[in-house]
Amino acid sequence: MTDAAPNNQPIAAHSPAAQLAIEIAGVQFNNPVWTASGTCGYGLDMAGLIDLNRLGGICTKGLSAKPMRGNAPWRIVETHGGMLNAIGLQNIGARAFVSEKLPELRNYDTRIIPNVFGYTIEEYIEAIKLLEDGPGIHAYELNISCPNVKAGGESFANDPRQAAAVTEAVKKAATRPVIVKMSPNVTDIAAIARAVEAAGADALSLINTAVGMSIDIHTRRPRLANVTGGLSGPAIKPIAVRCVFQAARAVRIPLIGIGGIATTEDALEFIIAGASAVQVGTANFYDPTAAMKIVDGLADYCTRHNLENIRALVGTVVLN
């Protein structure tokens, strides 16, 4: 058994700890349920409402080399089964995260995965270098959906070569595993997934938000100041499941499923499609305990189906 409890104590077979412990890119996770970037602050923001020790991992709010002010309001609008956001990646910067947030966050028995973004490859590297100074970080998640300002403003995520270039550069600078977060706003997600895998990505997380728009019919103005925004929540779940399914058939590196996961059943659907772990996002806003409920629900599922470990279910979708 490679699974070990976080405190290195032996864990009983068929205990929830044994059922849910997983390994991704050499990192041991207590369970496969993480909170998604942009939906849990820097982790500590949720500490008053949930027990952070019960989360498999925490993907922080996207961090850049320098602090970002974010977009003008309005930044969010609820839509059917989801919401649009255009926060504008407001964040305190990688340096402040390491000095102000990390010392307290790393006291929790969870895995810390800073989400990192930039508008040039150099900016990604700069942010990674600042985070490399931080102890207790387990992996990085790259948000590659930002526009590449040196390449005409097209998103890194939309072009296999650009996606590979930023992945490769970050891999050279990072001593920790790199998870690349994929955008659904592409024609062929499998092609991007293959390019990113070839560039050295340790895992893929998918999906980021789907670009959407909402218009106030009375004023005829877009509801978001930014005009367009990212659609998240249960409304995008079928798109996300499809992306995980397609990526699972394209690459061998582990996948982390994201997109409208609010219940145990949602998480199971992603796991069956090919995800080794999942991230809970928008649900944190309206049910902060959603991730903890899913942890319990997955353990129950393993018990009911006599699974020694949840990994036995990964990618077991039945076709025909």
Partner: peptide
């Protein structure tokens, strides 16, 4: 409670 950063 501070995590969505929507209410800027």
């Amino acid at each position: 409670f501070g995590i969505c950063v929507g209410c800027a």
